[in-house]
Measured scan of single mutants.
Amino acid sequence: GPIITTQVTIPKDLAGSIIGKGGQRIKQIRHESGASIKIDEPLEGSEDRIITITGTQDQIQNAQYLLQNSVKQY
């Protein structure tokens, strides 16, 4: 399918649970989903961080599912 980009906003407090120790968790999510995932640095004074996910519809759905699971375990 076509490559698309979607953005998800997360509270910055949850960023740690998604990134994992030394970036292990986010690497695993990238690997498992096949999507490209970029977590922006939090904006000055903002409570949120923006996650940019790029890939096919399937890859993005996979990545979103894995991201949600990471947050739930936290």
Rank of each mutant, 00 (worst) to 15 (best):
G1C: 08
G1Y: 02
G1E: 02
P2T: 15
P2K: 10
P2A: 13
P2G: 14
I3E: 09
I3R: 10
I3M: 14
I3Q: 04
I4T: 10
I4P: 04
T5L: 01
T5Y: 02
T5C: 03
T5D: 06
T6N: 03
T6L: 01
T6I: 02
T6C: 02
Q7L: 02
Q7W: 01
Q7T: 12
Q7F: 02
Q7C: 02
Q7P: 02
Q7H: 15
V8K: 13
V8P: 00
T9N: 02
T9I: 04
T9C: 07
I10G: 01
I10D: 00
I10R: 01
I10V: 15
I10S: 03
I10M: 09
P11L: 04
P11R: 08
P11K: 05
K12W: 04
K12N: 06
K12G: 04
D13M: 10
D13W: 07
D13K: 11
D13A: 06
D13Q: 09
L14K: 10
A15Q: 04
A15N: 03
A15S: 05
A15H: 05
G16A: 09
G16F: 06
G16L: 08
G16N: 12
S17F: 12
S17H: 11
I18C: 02
I18T: 05
I18S: 06
I18L: 14
I18F: 08
I18A: 13
I19Y: 08
I19R: 09
I19D: 04
I19A: 06
G20A: 14
K21A: 09
K21R: 13
K21G: 14
K21Y: 12
G22Q: 13
G22L: 08
G23T: 07
G23V: 06
G23P: 06
G23R: 13
Q24L: 05
Q24K: 15
Q24S: 11
Q24H: 15
R25T: 08
R25H: 02
R25F: 05
I26N: 04
I26T: 13
I26H: 04
I26S: 06
K27V: 10
K27L: 14
Q28V: 05
Q28A: 13
Q28Y: 01
Q28R: 13
Q28N: 15
Q28K: 15
I29A: 03
R30V: 12
H31L: 04
H31C: 10
H31A: 09
H31D: 15
H31Y: 04
E32S: 10
E32K: 05
E32C: 05
E32N: 11
S33I: 06
G34W: 01
G34N: 06
G34C: 08
G34F: 02
G34A: 05
G34K: 06
G34L: 04
G34M: 04
A35C: 10
A35M: 00
A35F: 00
A35P: 00
S36D: 08
S36R: 11
S36H: 10
S36W: 09
I37V: 07
I37L: 12
I37N: 00
I37Q: 00
I37R: 00
I37M: 11
I37G: 00
K38Q: 06
K38W: 04
K38M: 06
K38F: 06
I39K: 02
I39E: 10
I39V: 11
D40Q: 14
D40W: 03
D40E: 15
E41F: 06
E41Q: 10
E41Y: 06
E41T: 05
P42C: 08
P42Y: 05
P42W: 05
P42F: 06
L43Q: 08
L43G: 09
L43D: 14
L43P: 04
E44G: 07
E44P: 11
E44W: 03
E44M: 14
E44C: 06
G45L: 07
G45W: 07
G45D: 12
G45S: 06
G45N: 04
G45K: 13
S46I: 06
S46H: 12
S46A: 09
S46N: 11
S46F: 06
S46K: 09
E47Y: 07
D48C: 07
D48E: 11
D48S: 09
D48K: 11
R49P: 12
I50Y: 10
I50P: 06
I50N: 10
I51F: 15
I51M: 08
I51D: 01
I51W: 05
I51N: 00
I51E: 01
T52V: 06
T52E: 14
I53F: 09
I53H: 00
I53N: 01
I53W: 00
I53T: 01
I53E: 00
T54A: 11
T54V: 09
T54Q: 04
T54Y: 08
T54W: 04
G55N: 00
G55Y: 00
T56Y: 05
T56L: 07
T56E: 15
Q57V: 05
Q57A: 09
Q57M: 04
Q57F: 03
D58Y: 07
D58P: 09
D58M: 10
D58Q: 08
D58F: 07
D58R: 04
Q59Y: 00
I60V: 12
I60T: 07
I60W: 00
I60M: 03
I60Q: 05
I60N: 14
I60G: 01
Q61H: 11
Q61Y: 10
Q61F: 04
Q61M: 07
Q61A: 09
N62V: 08
N62W: 05
N62T: 12
N62G: 12
N62K: 09
N62C: 13
A63H: 00
A63F: 05
A63G: 03
A63L: 01
A63N: 00
Q64N: 11
Q64W: 01
Q64I: 01
Q64E: 15
Q64H: 02
Q64M: 02
Q64R: 11
Q64F: 01
Y65L: 10
Y65R: 13
Y65H: 15
L66F: 07
L67H: 00
L67W: 03
L67M: 07
L67Y: 01
Q68H: 04
Q68N: 15
Q68W: 02
N69P: 08
N69F: 03
N69C: 14
N69T: 06
S70E: 13
S70M: 14
S70Q: 12
S70K: 05
V71R: 10
V71F: 05
V71K: 10
V71C: 10
V71A: 11
K72C: 03
K72H: 10
K72D: 15
K72M: 08
Q73E: 12
Y74G: 15
Y74R: 15
